[in-house]
């Protein structure tokens, strides 16, 4: 996990905004990231200066979570929506990046900010580097351009994101629901989507409960 690719992309496209880095210590930070490929090593290397003698497992248990420094462990950048396709094409085809493998596409609902974050995670098998991209779009009428023309594998991932979040992927060859049935109402992974049992199911559950109580098994609960 290195930030090299993200920094290279920042040079090429100055308008993108890099993710916040873990630790925010530019001097020591680069050294750790260069040596420790598996994050376990990185954690071990970072723990002594940060914890001041405390063992690392004790940190989350003893300190409230909101006091711990945020840990953004995925290198990546927030890109503007209109630049997405151009950036993705460079990432996938330019040998300098070589990110020919798209791990997944998903989204994160941020209702307090009134927007969705669409997340793309790309990977290169040659350099073993990863890079995440985020696009922020408003929640109302959310849409982003489809990247299926660049990574074929995005097809189903975009369908899933459309299905579960309701984000339109413009130019997608077959944007239909994939997990839920075609007549489903709502998009389940939105934070404001609350599952409510249909009336008939509530009725059945109530009847079952009465039956069980009639059998004298109520004390089990």
């Amino acid at each position: 996990m290195s930030w090299d690719l993200a920094e290279k992309l920042k040079v090429r496209f100055p308008e993108i905004e890099l993710f916040p880095r873990p630790g925010h210590q530019p001097g020591t930070g680069n050294g750790e990231r260069g040596t420790g490929e598996p994050p376990r090593g990185e954690v071990a290397a970072a723990a002594p200066p940060a914890g001041e003698g405390q063992t690392s497992p004790a940190v989350p248990a003893k300190r409230p979570a909101h006091e711990a420094p945020p840990a953004y462990l995925v290198p990546g950048a927030v890109v503007p929506k209109d630049k997405l396709l151009e950036i993705c094409r460079v990432l996938a085809t330019d040998p300098e990046f070589g990110l020919s493998y798209l791990s997944f596409v998903t989204a994160v609902d941020r209702p307090e900010a009134g927007e969705f974050e669409v997340v793309y995670h790309c990977y290169s098998h040659q350099s073993r580097e990863e890079l995440a991209l985020k696009v922020r779009v408003p929640r109302d009428g959310a849409s982003v351009p489809s990247v299926t023309s660049i990574w074929d594998g995005a097809n189903w991932h975009e369908r899933e994101t459309y299905d579960l979040f309701g984000i339109i992927f413009e130019g997608h060859p077959n944007l239909r629901r994939i997990m839920m049935t075609d007549d489903w109402i709502g998009h389940p992974l939105r934070k404001d989507y609350v599952y409510k049992d249909p009336a008939w199911l509530v009725e059945v559950a109530k009847r079952r409960k009465d039956e069980i109580e009639g059998l004298g098994l109520g004390e089990r609960a």
Partner: peptide, 18 residues
Amino acid sequence: RAKVAVTLRVPKGEVYAR
């Protein structure tokens, strides 16, 4: 097993584990 609270609160952040 390391000592971990039952109601573990994980610090703010993002990670991708594969």
